[in-house]
């Protein structure tokens, strides 16, 4: 499977999006390579979530197209779409667990939808996924409303990973978690990424998450990607948003030291 140049998992081509008269994205190009972890950063309202929603295929861009695994998601038939969608998992910002179902059924849901496994196998798999995201078996029967923020994220991660996707999309993975939990969650994503060989795209505000998870950083400003390179190289980029972003990082580091 190894090739000299890594394959492109996700590609955005000349994306423009407009809501009414507000231009959110304009002529945006982005490539995500297999096996990397790409961070999307940008100010609030810079279109990070919009871009993520385009990639997942929830919204269509006004112009341009998104290729996932080389296929344009919007233009293939329903069965094909389902197959492509089973190749990526999404962790929504609030977890988006089905609130009427207990944790167990939330994780079992995508597995049941495949219609390939019997109940016993599904049970074994769900319990295994729970240990994978470091939750206890007795948590399986709790409802989402009974879980803490960190547990919701873990369960949502287990659900996103249930079908063994190649690509994992995370919207603000550590938002709403305390620093300790957020560190633990990032560690978990890192270790899962290694064992499962995932490609990760995540949008974040959190500098610590960025530093410990990202291979490459794509900066979204002025309606397009102003830079996409590893974090150290970002310092050479001459853009007001990037500059202020780095000032923040330096200040934080100084305060900690």
């Amino acid at each position: 499977m190894k090739t000299s140049a890594p394959a492109i998992v996700c590609e955005a081509r000349k994306i423009s999006t407009q809501y009414g008269s507000t231009v959110v994205l304009h002529d945006l190009d982005l490539k995500v390579y297999q096996g990397e972890a790409l961070a999307l950063v940008g100010g609030s309202g810079s279109g990070k979530s919009t871009l993520l929603r385009h990639i997942i295929g929830l919204n269509r861009p006004t112009h341009g197209e998104i290729l996932l695994f080389g296929e344009p998601l919007q233009e293939i038939d329903r069965e094909g779409q389902r197959r492509v969608r089973n190749r990526f998992g999404v962790l929504f910002q609030q977890g988006a667990l089905f609130s009427a179902l207990p944790v167990f059924d939330n994780i079992a849901f995508p597995l049941r939808e495949l219609h390939q496994f019997d109940d016993e196998t599904i049970h074994r798999l769900v319990m295994f996924k729970l240990t994978l995201v470091e939750l206890e078996p007795e948590h399986a029967w709790l409802l989402p409303a009974q879980l803490s923020g960190g547990m919701i994220k873990r369960v949502a991660l287990a659900r996103a990973l249930a079908l063994k996707p190649e690509l994992l999309l995370l919207d603000e993975p550590t938002a709403g978690l305390d620093p300790d939990r957020s560190k633990g969650f990032v560690q978990l994503i890192r270790s899962l990424r290694e064992t499962l060989g995932l490609t990760v795209i995540f949008a974040t505000h959190d500098v610590d998450t960025l530093i410990s998870l990202a291979d490459r950083v794509a900066v979204l400003a002025d309606q397009h990607i102003v830079a996409a390179c590893p974090l150290p190289e970002l310092q050479q980029v001459d853009h007001p948003f990037v500059a202020s972003f780095f000032r923040d990082i330096h200040q934080r580091r100084e305060r900690i030291n």
């Binding site: 597995l111 496994f117 196998t121 074994r124 798999l125 295994f128 996924k129 063994k164």
Partner: peptide
């Protein structure tokens, strides 16, 4: 070999 396939085999072997 992923967990889903392993669980399927395990179910076939009787646990």
């Amino acid at each position: 070999l992923d967990s889903a396939a392993a669980a399927m085999l395990l179910a076939g072997w009787g646990g």
